[in-house]
Amino acid sequence: MPDGATKPFVRIEGLKRYFDVSAPWLVRKLEGRPRQVVQAVDGIDIEIAQGETFSLVGESGCGKSTVARLVVGLYPPTAGRIEFDGQDMGARRVQSESMALRRRLQMIFQDPYASLNPRWRVFDIIAEPIRAFGLSTDKADLEKQVADLLRQVRLTPADGRKYPHEFSGGQRQRISIARALASRPEFLVCDEPTSALDVSVQAQILNLMMDLQRRFRLTYLFISHNLAVVYHISTRVGVMYLGRLVEQAPTDTLFKRPKHPYTRMLLDTIPDLEMTGRQRTPVGGEVPSPIDPPSGCSFHPRCPFANERCKAERPQALPIEGGTVACHAIEEARLPIEERSYAGAP
């Protein structure tokens, strides 16, 4: 947690986003069906300090990508506020001011095949943010900026003349990163940037992202389902389950002393190279539908430690060891916190 003196760079408070997935009005009236609402993000609080990497992990459908899209403003939130460098993102402001604010945050998407316009040359793809925010003085300056960006992501300026289809997945993701860096942002939201890539290419991209972070003092919100990747690059980690943040903590604390039963379950199920021939502990059950989430703690149907209180009362985030955890069993000290060791740890 950022210490009290420094203000968090990004602060998310009580963020909610509901999606209406009801049948059309006439069908509802004729068949007497109720409205249906997906609670994709249901009250999330996060603080991110400048220069750190905050990762959100969770299984598909837990709402982590929705958080990413809310933060960059691709969806308006149903409730709650997002503050960026002390400014409320949802506040009304004149266009020049909101442009200036938006320049400072950019997004990298998961699928490098879908996120680049196939009809544009790479030069134009990367130049677009520079043009849109009016960051270049003339053509020569624009060309120099794009060439610099291409070099920063380990491509060559000559690649600017090509089209996206001429590149491999890893190279396309480099182009996405160059485009995101073009407006000289301070905060990057990365939605599963490596999950469409092969492992050797994933390592290249993660190394590149960490280099760029050090060089430009970038702040990352990193969304991933891969715990090993998250362990590697994050300062802090938040674990999401059914639209709620069940636990957040500094990376080492989360992996060494996981508290929430769901975090423990996730850690148990990671396949590890050290596990040759050994059995992973399979966990029963699946993620329930966010249309009709379980009452109380939404993890209680799969949780081996659930009791009556867990079924009835929604747990609140409880500060613990530099993070928070939302779990009655931890609060009541019914569930001891165990130290975990990993093969290969020093």
Partner: peptide
């Protein structure tokens, strides 16, 4: 190049190129 839990290096080993 596979990130593993347990030891965190400054950089992952990478195979250059594709």
């Amino acid at each position: 190049s596979i990130p593993s839990l347990g030891h965190r290096a400054e950089r992952l080993t990478q195979i250059d190129g594709s």
